[in-house]
Computed example of a mutant assay.
Amino acid sequence: MSTPDAPARTVAYRDATGADVPAVVSLVDAAYRGEASRAGWTTEADLLDGQRTDTEAVAEILADPGSRLLLAIGTDGVIVCCCHVRRTDATTAYLGSFAVRPGLQGAGTGGALMREAERRAVAEWRSAQMEMTVIAQRPELIGWYERRGYVRTGETRPFPYGDERFGRPRRDDLVFVVLRKDLATAR
């Protein structure tokens, strides 16, 4: 039995390349949207329809010199999880596009990739804190991040209604909560 933060399978970490874009889009959409996402616990299928990301958005991440798209690759060569880390200012990095293959959620691989993302933000950019946004209507996901040291800041940000690049909302009350983790004390 694996612990919540111990990877259940051996993985290697690397930055994504242009060749990974289709697989990343597929992974992110599978983790959050449609019937396939219901195999895991991170599904947003009851909140949003449509895509979670697209090839243009992932290509933009790769083209941004202040960003990294980190991948965890299983021993079989398949991408098992990913996350986008972006330097937002001199002390803060942003974590987004965090996705774990639905059938592997809960095995610890996601927590391990998150720690790798935090480690890289400190090592590469000397970030003192990591920030993220999560849809407020996802209390179980917010709780997962809180158990890993992220705290609610009290700040909210609007959901981008009308921009189908982020999906088609099934309700009119979606909003993002901002979570932050102090990376200096997390070591």
Rank of each mutant, 00 (worst) to 15 (best):
A16T: 08
R119Y: 08
R171A: 12
E124Q: 15
W41T: 08
G103I: 03
R138F: 07
C82R: 02
A45E: 07
G103H: 15
S26H: 13
L27F: 13
Q137V: 06
V134C: 15
A93R: 00
E60A: 15
L71Y: 02
P158S: 09
V100Q: 05
V24E: 09
R86C: 00
Y13H: 15
Q105G: 11
D29H: 11
S2G: 10
V11Q: 06
G149S: 09
L141C: 00
G143Q: 14
A59L: 06
Y161D: 08
S37F: 01
I142L: 10
M132Y: 04
F159G: 05
R148E: 03
G106Q: 13
A12Y: 12
A117E: 01
L113I: 01
D49H: 10
G34K: 01
V78N: 05
A90L: 00
G50T: 13
R180L: 02
H84S: 03
A107H: 08
G154Y: 09
L174Y: 08
R157K: 13
L95E: 00
D182S: 06
V21S: 02
A107S: 15
L47R: 07
A99K: 01
P7D: 11
A121S: 15
R68L: 07
R168Y: 14
V100Y: 03
G154S: 07
T156K: 05
V122D: 05
D20Y: 07
V178K: 08
Y145C: 11
L174N: 08
R165K: 15
G40D: 10
R152E: 11
A93H: 00
L47K: 03
G18Y: 04
V28C: 11
G74I: 00
T91D: 12
T17W: 14
L27T: 03
S67G: 00
F98N: 01
D89T: 01
I142M: 11
D173Y: 09
D15F: 07
V100N: 04
A128F: 02
E140D: 14
V151D: 06
R170A: 14
V175L: 12
V122C: 09
R148N: 07
D29L: 07
S26M: 06
R86Y: 00
G106T: 10
A99H: 04
A128M: 08
T133V: 12
T43Y: 11
E124R: 11
W144K: 14
M132P: 04
